[in-house]
Amino acid sequence: MEAVFGLARLARALVLVAAGTSAFAQQGTPAPVRKEAAPPAVAAWPTKPVKLVIGFPPGSVQDLSARALSEPLAKALGQPVIVENKAGASGTIAGAFVAKATDLHTFGVMNNSQLTIAKLLNPAIQYDPARDLTPVALIGTTPMVLVVGAAAPGKTPLDWLGWLRGQGDKASYGSPGNGTPGHLGMELIKSRSGLDTMHVPFQGNPQIITALLGGHLQAALLPPGLAMQQVAAGKLKAVAVTSERRSVLAPDLPTMREVGVMGADVELWTALAGPASLPPHVRDKLASTVIEVVKADETRQRLLTAGWQAAPSTGEGLRVRMKNDTKTFGGIIMMRNIRADL
């Protein structure tokens, strides 16, 4: 019997020793620390040529802005910058192409409509500006110039505007397509001025100028960089600019307000955007580089020559522009029941 009790006492002692050893280990020996994996290094960028996709033909205002930017941007990035034109469908072909890009080196130089109301105009397009594109940076802005053919009688902007109004729906105006700023801006002017000119869509502004010079159109809204060359040559007559204030791009022209058309303030802008999948480090590097390049005197002059006022800002500043234009142009679309080219 004593042997049995002895074995029991021995077992309890062993349990106590084991418990004490465990407690000592918990109190005196720190638990092993799990090492977190180091964050992956941000990949170098760019690693190959950067492509700027334009939704309009060579010679168009968007094309000119991209080409003014391409050389200094290439120097800053250390890689070639290639401008590629994918014209058609009011720029939405190019918009869809950029939205689907996955190579981290394809971007779009886009205008108001491509980055704002494209989906409102045509729900069938293959991208949604708000969902499928990343705003990178604003590049520049410009008003548009209301021009009429050289055959318009009179000597003043008020004379030419009065003549155009008197033509009613016998007169026609051109734009680079349904939903482009040239179209929506003109419809806004019509709603504020009593004009009743008919809309004729074209592939781009160079084709519109050809039609104006040939007498096939009576009016159009054109960027100053294209309009003022023809005005200076006496081939077109300029009525007014669409900005709230007079522009350095056409300092002698009155505003639409000055010729009695109130509430028709519209600016065209050009901006850089990428696909929604664009990594933040690529977006931020490209944005900061573009802003730095556009602020340089040489680039500002290049843009001015191409018909743009340099207006560099971050993607957040671009988002504000997009929001405001969506409201303004969205109202015109609803009021005029405008639909995209199909």
Rank of each mutant, 00 (worst) to 15 (best):
V4T: 13
F5W: 15
R9S: 14
L10R: 15
V15A: 15
P30R: 14
P39N: 01
A44P: 10
T47F: 02
T47P: 07
V50R: 05
G55L: 04
D63P: 09
S65M: 12
A66G: 08
E71H: 05
P72C: 06
G78Y: 05
N85G: 06
K86N: 06
A87S: 05
I93T: 12
F97H: 13
A101T: 05
D103R: 08
K119E: 10
P123W: 05
P123N: 05
A124F: 04
T142L: 00
P143F: 06
G149C: 07
G149W: 01
A151L: 07
A152E: 10
T156Q: 09
L158Q: 15
D159Y: 11
R165E: 01
D169C: 06
A171F: 02
S172I: 05
H183K: 00
L188N: 01
T197N: 12
P201T: 00
I209E: 04
T210Q: 14
L213R: 02
L213N: 04
P224E: 02
A227K: 01
Q230Y: 12
V231S: 09
V231K: 11
A233N: 08
L236S: 02
L236G: 01
S243H: 05
R246D: 07
S247G: 03
D252H: 09
E258D: 14
A264C: 08
T270W: 10
L272H: 07
A273H: 07
P275C: 11
D284W: 10
K285W: 06
V293C: 05
E298R: 10
E298H: 06
L303A: 07
A310E: 06
A311S: 14
G315R: 04
L318A: 11
K323H: 14
K323F: 14
F329W: 12
M335T: 11
